[in-house]
Amino acid sequence: MKTGRLRDVAAVGVAVLVVAGLVVLPLATVFYEALRAGLGAFATVFSEPYAQSAIRLTLIVAAATVAFNTAFGMLAAWTIAKYRFPGKAFLLAAIDLPLTVSPVVAGLAILLTVGPHTLPGAWLLAHGVHIAFAPAGIVLATIFVTFPYVARELTVFLQEQGRELEEAALSMGASVLQTFWRVTLPNAKWALLNGMLLCNARAMGEFGAVSVISGRIRGQTNTVPLHIEILYNENTFVGAFALAASLAMLTMLLSGIRALLEARTHRRPVPDGDALGTAERAREAGLGRIVAAPRIALDVGE
């Protein structure tokens, strides 16, 4: 018994060391470097005009991205969960595709599709509409990268809900749109919010895709992650890490809120262990179908 206990402590200790070395050290570095010159230096970073314009652009891009992907997510989730049609698996796979595409390739794809040397890009440019190397292109690239999050979150939730409520509403004379807004959506509001939070966090932090399409014009097409890169390469470490720490705080706060929402959205996991909760979280974190399989296995096992 005694040696068993000792072995437990050793096992936990090694795991803590692994996570500390791999994850906690880099995280601690962000905050240490941001604050090493004091709170005053930290605060001045945010009064710098280029930093302010980067923050403004990031907020605008995130808002536009979340708006588009939320609208699409509601449409896709309703379509997939409430109707039967052939090729549903292909549609789901196509929606998930951006998760496996390198961010740089995503940015390149947008650039090659609507860039200045393409037909649509040239036409728009001739009419004074700038997409590549302009905020519009940054929004398009960010939409691509964060495309699946709301749709995926909401689809799973609506599929679990079934369609009895909708059928009841429709049989009582409600229109499809009324049914969606008054019956389906109010039930799904926490799942929707969850997806929007994840989409927002990813949109604010996107770097690779945006760096290809933005052109990095300071004060105009520079987002916060891109400004972090510029400051770091200029050896303005306090500035780079002050922005990095704020961005990290924000994205981790969003993750935290999501974790709290989890408890509301989903039935609590099976008594022993956290299997179901963990599977949910993993799925939302973008791990995809892989955790759907163990979930099915779990359901069968019960």
Partner: peptide, 19 residues
């Protein structure tokens, strides 16, 4: 803590690891 690498923007992770 296991989820931190997913939540941390890649540019932030990049400069932290490099430093």
């Amino acid at each position: 803590l296991v989820d931190v690498p997913l939540a941390l923007p890649t540019a932030v992770a990049g400069i932290a690891l490099a430093t």
